[in-house]
Design a binder for these strands. Structure first.
Lengths: 247, 247
DNA sequence: TTAATAGTGTCTCTGAGACACTATGTG
DNA sequence: CACATAGTGTCTCAGAGACACTATTAA
């Protein structure tokens, strides 16, 4: 802004720039808000009230405002569409196929958020829902994901959002065993069984109990609180707390 | 485009849409073209002829055209600025701080490319150069990277491109031991020593020879060609070829 | 008491690193 | 021959999985 005195050296740039100026893509941010409830992956979806893809389910999103960073847009979408603040939020991928939105050129920067299911007291009307997120492939191969309703039936997904959800799962599976992201899906105090169930939900496979406990305890990322879990019909497990790694 | 009959349900979208319509960010693609020469990481940089950051070094880039996907833009930049075609190219991250370009709002989608040094017959004028890429942090911690010239002196880097190069290195280091990316930086036939040197350059640390060979050979991703390397003053090593994994 | 889960002891297998060795090319 | 690097044999150590066992709570 301090540099706009129109000196001659700026001409070349402006020539190229003006040429592009008459038509620019729109830029939006979409957010995949992921959680685990009852050992199953969920993702927050909105039912589209309008064309295109009317009636299909889509990720919440919004236009990037001129004075807002991408991360700020993502945080605003989280606040406005899901009432969430201060949760784990990370950029995933930018989708830019010219025809991905049939109306006009829309480039969308996708973020994903990880949330404790208890925080998502979704106002769950008919138009906003925590849908099941199911992944029809193993490991980190990749591919599209599917969205299902209460009844387990596949729901129609708008735009390229099924592909996006596939990328979310690929990222989560890849990141899970070297980054502390499982904790983001749990309340402040949790049992090691709950943490293992979160990992199993993300990976879609059973893990070895002893190995899992050894690795988590050896990581130094959890500390026992001394308290025990409540309201279970069997031996209660110890509650742990996530200990932020000092960098 | 088949859907623009202005039915009443589309009004709501258009209302929100028009409100944003008067001002949109520009979208560009920047590409970090990375290679390894003489066991050292290099990146292709252009010296900026104009303000802002006149004289500083920047990654090649270009505006996204309206009918072009992001990947196509990246491929076009590769072709136009470096004369490269058909090499490894992957999306990295999208940078969107409102003030990252002092002139106007520019959101840039960053790709990185991996190239065999021999293919980069850079027309190496004074304004385009294969700069040294040095990384002042260990492991996958992250942070900005530095760009150096022939003489080893740090060069000024334009925009947020030092941060971008840090992200490139973080991605490369993280990806190196589970994805076959080392091969992308080598000619079709290579020795295991050359492959190890590429890995060591990316990780900035020495690797155990025996371990490395065991892992590479066990991976099933290389096959021996039977031929031996030429023009060395000592016992020549066997040449291997990268074997594409069947999915 | 039984049922169910929490939590552990111990064995095996596999892969990484350390070290030393043999093999094979050039000069 | 000496020399430099290619390539391997073998030991140790650490982490993951398998299996079986003990511990602790509710009902």
């Amino acid at each position: 802004m301090s540099d706009t005195k129109q000196n001659p050296e700026e001409q070349a740039f402006l020539r190229e720039y003006q040429a592009q100026d008459f038509e620019r893509p729109s830029v939006t941010v979409d957010v995949a808000i992921v959680t685990v409830a009852d050992g199953e992956l969920r993702v927050l979806c909105l039912k589209r009230p309008d064309h295109p893809f009317k009636g299909a389910w889509a990720l919440p999103g919004g236009f990037v405002r001129m004075n807002e960073s991408l991360e700020e847009t993502a945080a605003r979408v989280m606040r406005e569409k899901a009432g969430l603040e201060g949760v784990f939020l990370e950029q995933l991928e930018t989708m830019g196929e010219p025809a991905r939105d049939p109306r006009t050129r829309v480039i969308t920067v996708v973020y994903y958020a990880l949330v404790d299911a208890a925080e998502l007291q979704t106002s769950s009307g008919a138009d906003i829902e925590l849908c099941w997120l199911s992944v029809p492939w193993k490991g980190e191969r990749g591919g599209s994901a599917e969205v299902r309703g209460e009844d387990g039936k596949k729901l129609p997904v708008a735009f390229d959002h099924a592909e996006i959800l596939g990328l979310v799962m690929k990222r989560l599976r890849g990141k899970l065993d070297y980054a502390p992201i499982g904790f983001e899906l749990l309340p402040e105090r949790f049992t090691l069984r709950e943490l293992q169930e979160v990992h199993e939900a993300i990976l879609s496979r059973k893990l070895n109990k002893h190995s899992f406990r050894r690795k988590v305890l050896a990581s130094g990322l959890v500390s026992p609180t001394g308290a025990l879990e409540q309201d279970v019909d069997f031996r209660p497990a110890q509650l742990f707390r996530f200990k932020k790694p000092r960098r």
